[in-house]
């Protein structure tokens, strides 16, 4: 099973071509912006280096975040276009799933949600649906002893909650999205994992009363 993985959820542009658990190519470029311009050319290069044609692909794996809204949409929209054109599945994989890949036992994955907050997801006995939490809410979570904390501020959170600190990386290698995609069933199209409502303000002033309304 050959998979092309795409991830632009953070300040990077990453692609990988895999066959089962073998990495055929893995390319990552650091960038704050410009992912929309680089993503498809990098995917073309990765496929060429792997000696894999577009038609040889069995699925697209795409990082759905959480992270930069615009970044997530770049890869998700491309993956959905590719899947339509190739008539194969596009599989959305969260950064949580990619980071927690191959972990055994209770795991808490933390990502930077900015403004002092965390995106969190727990696995195993630390099972926790994806969410956003401030430090206070984080402390109130029911996490079993021995939970391994991965990702953003892993050491600080582990010390604070008397848990075990794991690696602090928040950016999985792109192949991790492909590997995690093997475990995801169901056919729904990938959608960004925002975990934050759209920033939108309702009109501040109500319209004037209509005097002759019944």
């Amino acid at each position: 099973m050959k998979i092309l993985a795409l991830d632009t959820a953070g300040p990077h542009c990453s692609v990988a071509v895999t066959e089962w658990r073998e990495v055929l190519t893995s390319l990552t470029e650091r960038m704050d912006r410009g992912q929309a311009e680089r993503l498809v050319p990098m995917a073309q290069t990765a496929l060429e280096l792997a000696g894999v044609g577009w038609r040889d692909l069995d699925a697209i794996a795409v990082g759905v975040g959480p992270g930069n809204f615009t970044g997530i949409r770049i890869a998700v929209a491309a993956a959905r276009g590719l899947a339509l054109a190739l008539d194969i599945r596009a599989i959305g994989v969260s950064t949580f799933d990619a980071l927690a890949l191959d972990c055994i036992g209770p795991v808490l994955v933390s990502l930077d949600a900015r403004r002092g907050r965390y995106y969190l997801r727990g696995y195993g006995e630390a099972d926790l649906s994806p969410r956003i939490a401030d430090p206070h809410e984080l402390r109130a979570l029911p996490l079993p002893p021995g939970t391994v904390v991965l990702g953003h501020h892993a050491a600080r959170i582990a010390a604070d909650l008397e848990l075990t600190a794991g690696p602090e990386t928040s950016t999985p290698d792109p192949e991790a999205f492909a590997f995690a995609a093997h475990l995801i069933e169901g056919g729904e199209a990938p959608a960004p994992l925002y975990l934050r409502a759209a920033d939108a303000a309702l009109p501040s002033e109500p319209p004037p009363p209509i005097l002759d309304d019944a």
Binding site: A36, L39, V40, W54, R73, I74, A77, A79, G81, L82
Partner: peptide
């Protein structure tokens, strides 16, 4: 991005 996916 969707268009690029379709074209590529």
């Amino acid at each position: 991005m969707c268009a690029k996916g379709l074209s590529a």
